[in-house]
Nucleic acid binder design. Sequence first.
DNA 1: AATACTTTGTGAATACATTCACAAAGTATA
DNA 2: TATACTTTGTGAATGTATTCACAAAGTATT
Lengths: 217, 217
Amino acid sequence: MRYHRIPAETVRRLPVYLNALLLSLQQGKSISSSELSAIVGINPLQIRKDFSYFGGFGTRGVGYNIEKLIKKIKKILKLDSHHQAVLVGAGNLGSAVLAYPGFAAYGFQIAAAYDSDPAKIGKTINNITIEDAENIINLKKKNIKIGIIAVPRQQSQAIAQSLVNAGVTGILNFSPCRLAVPKRVKVITINIATDLARLPFYMPADKKIGFALNKRA
Amino acid sequence: MRYHRIPAETVRRLPVYLNALLLSLQQGKSISSSELSAIVGINPLQIRKDFSYFGGFGTRGVGYNIEKLIKKIKKILKLDSHHQAVLVGAGNLGSAVLAYPGFAAYGFQIAAAYDSDPAKIGKTINNITIEDAENIINLKKKNIKIGIIAVPRQQSQAIAQSLVNAGVTGILNFSPCRLAVPKRVKVITINIATDLARLPFYMPADKKIGFALNKRA
DNA sequence: AATACTTTGTGAATACATTCACAAAGTATA
DNA sequence: TATACTTTGTGAATGTATTCACAAAGTATT
């Protein structure tokens, strides 16, 4: 298994495959690249190429053993062990993240949540009691290495700093800004607004009614 | 201005630039590519290349006029006019989207919200009253062409169909699945879980204590 | 006016990602 | 066992995106 030189785009697709495979577990024992393609909407050739970076693990004429493939992808993505994460920011978005049902399938669990608003500290959402953001310390001891940031932009850099100080090496950032962190720390930013903002570019322009009438005339 | 053959990656970055430029408006009249780079964390050469696809609109030795640049980017992204959108799914995530403050800067406004759960229909969040999802009809008449889907995976395809039937041509999809829509309809999917799922791949592996001791011995 | 400096803009070169063409290795059938 | 069929896997070709090298055009300074 040659783990070096994996295209970033492949790493981006692996969780998508994993998601589809988990859903396909009941369907049967094995799945072909074209069957998988039908689910995820990615070219089967691309799928095979992606898998080939880790060595061939399908059988020709048949396809891929689903269970085996799931295990393999989980190992590649380091999802074979469970991960604990903390959430910072229990506003609207933070609360939604706390209740989000999709993390469990990948082995993620939110172990603690923080906020700096006294009105929120002490409240319980989804069995998690919100703690004071000042208490983000020594997460390494609790084996927590992932932080999720859902605070307003102005506070996000300071929170990132706290998380890194506490031992976090991976951050999922919902704040619409760049975070300055040490090189060893990986940040993935989700910016809902910038994603929505490129939608109109791809949408067909309005047809002018006058023009349409002219064409018909 | 040659609008053809714009790299997809450039379109993805334009909203990020726009966001930074709106924040820089107070700072001064013009901004250089390296100053912008410091804010958004994108190589200044890349920034200039991106802008050059639309024709040079900076002045050498000075930089870019911020106001002019904002107008230009807004026009390219078709954000120079306001956009109305509807939200479907008023669960945790949907409610967070409804309250999300970041859309306004790009000229987006959520005009209506729908859900199929009778317990939610009639409730008001952020001045928007949740309507029955059955009533997603004739949005074109109201000049609404964007739909945001935040319903469980099982329902998302049906909702997408309703939105398309009602005249929507752009969808922001938070459901963890592919949506089958006509070619003219653009879908952008945000999958929080798959983004989180590739974080461990990039995080440094735990140091084994035994190995560290061996090295020291 | 001449020189030094700053910053944009662009064709060429490089790096990265996808697709093609086809070989390899399996299953199913006669 | 031979033949037809299916599906994976991979080097080469193509396509897309980023970076390089440097020219062009402005400002600031002497």
